[in-house]
Amino acid sequence: MHRRRFLLSSCATAGLILAEKGAAMPAAAQREISIGLTPVFLDHQLEFLKQLRSYLSERLSAPVRFVQRGSYREIVDLIRVSKLDFAWLCGYPYVRFRREMRLLAVPLYFGNPLYQSYLIAASSDKTTTSLLDLHGKIFAYSDPDSNSGYLVPQYQLLRAGENPSTFFSRSFFTWGHRKIIEAVGVGLAQGGAVDGYVWDTLNLLHPELTATTRVVSRSPELGFPPFVARSDIPEPVFRRMQQVLLAMSQDTQGAHLLKTLNLDGFVPGSDALFSDIETMARVVGKARK
């Protein structure tokens, strides 16, 4: 806890310095662009990340650095204090800290900037049909800042009149969607909430992993985890980055990378996309108080 606070304060200072420098030297072509990544996608494919980085770096004519952390929160905090230029976040932290960041682009999944949260159970579990069947069981959340892996089940329980903090006998965070699947697969948890896009993509890449689980229910479609920029991002950099992402599906290299990501492309998106998440966040936030 001490460490966290220290990190926050130091980041804030660094961010200020960076922001000042950014203002003093606008559109510095050689300035390194930092992009924060979270487990909203399969962030463990290092080889793929290398390709993606060199692609972006080439298109942006600037060195690109990817920043990965153990939780959403750390990335969110980094971009809030402008320590990062861009980040691929979940919709939930976006709606919470919208004023401290700018929406850059939203990925297209099956042609739409939408995805679902999946409730999964072990494939050997034939009885569970809804979240409410898991009363008194052990539940795996991905990250307290995840929409699909935390906010959605919390909201659903509240809507059903349950107290999310006592409904399960025990719950824990795995800090990644892929690990939710593993935890449910080995039986550490009887249920888990997972990013539907991650589950589907893993189902294509590692069917042996997803085969240990089954999808019990799917949430309504929600805004796909967006790319955001720090609030004080210089406009040319923001534009350039947005153009690169939006045009990604139009060149073969970009299309290939998108295919690996199991995505179709990017759209600028709008805050309206995330209004449902915002509603849920409000409900859950209120309940917590």
Partner: peptide
């Protein structure tokens, strides 16, 4: 009390 880390 981090169950998942302990499991890992």
């Amino acid at each position: 009390d981090d169950l998942w880390r302990a499991f890992e």
